Simulated scan of single mutants.
Amino acid sequence: MPLSVGDTAPNFTVKDTIGKTVTLSEYAGKTIVLYFYPKDDTPGCTKEACSFRDNYQQYLSQGITVFGVSMDDSASHQQFTEKFNLPFPLLADVDGAITRAYDVLGDRNGTLYSQRVTYIIGGDGKIAQVYTSIQTESHASDILSAIGA
């Protein structure tokens, strides 16, 4: 069961696509879209990532930071980012620590993965919205509509 609206977003420190260290608490005061997805370069995950790519300027103009999270490593994230020209960081949760902290760990035939769940984290560090039923192609624009952007 994913975390709920009003819960404090668990802090984390992890490497992003280019090996830069990202710590959630460093983004205090900012709105964050933290979207979890199962695997780089698969059909649904590609549609979702491209949805964020295509709406990214609108997120920036609203002062919203976007992070994608999966259990793929940085090398996989780099290939995925380059192939689809993704302008936002992907977080390499190779040990599943973030996925577990946000309670979105899935298991398919013994293979662990991040379930497709998106959290909107407010500037106060609390979860403002949770999306568990996601239309991958329109997800990013659906969020913008929901937050009135």
Rank of each mutant, 00 (worst) to 15 (best):
K39H: 04
L105F: 11
S138L: 02
N109Y: 14
T118P: 00
L3M: 04
Q58V: 15
A75R: 13
T81Q: 09
H77M: 02
G122W: 02
E48K: 06
L24T: 04
V22K: 08
S138C: 08
T17S: 05
S114T: 13
Y37S: 03
G29W: 05
Y37F: 15
R53N: 05
T21M: 09
I120A: 02
T46P: 00
R116Q: 13
L60A: 13
G110D: 07
A9C: 02
T8W: 02
N11C: 07
S61K: 15
K126T: 07
V22H: 10
D73K: 11
E82A: 15
I18V: 13
L24A: 04
D124S: 06
T65A: 14
T17W: 07
P38H: 11
Q78C: 06
D40V: 12
T132F: 03
D95I: 06
R108L: 14
T132E: 14
G68T: 10
P89F: 03
S4K: 14
A97R: 10
K20L: 02
G63Y: 08
G123K: 14
G63A: 10
Y102K: 04
D107L: 12
T111K: 13
V22S: 03
D124P: 01
P38S: 11
K47M: 14
V66L: 02
V104C: 06
S4D: 07
L3W: 05
G106Q: 09
T13H: 08
E137Q: 13
L112A: 14
L112I: 09
S70H: 02
L24E: 09
T13I: 10
Q62V: 01
S114Y: 03
M71W: 06
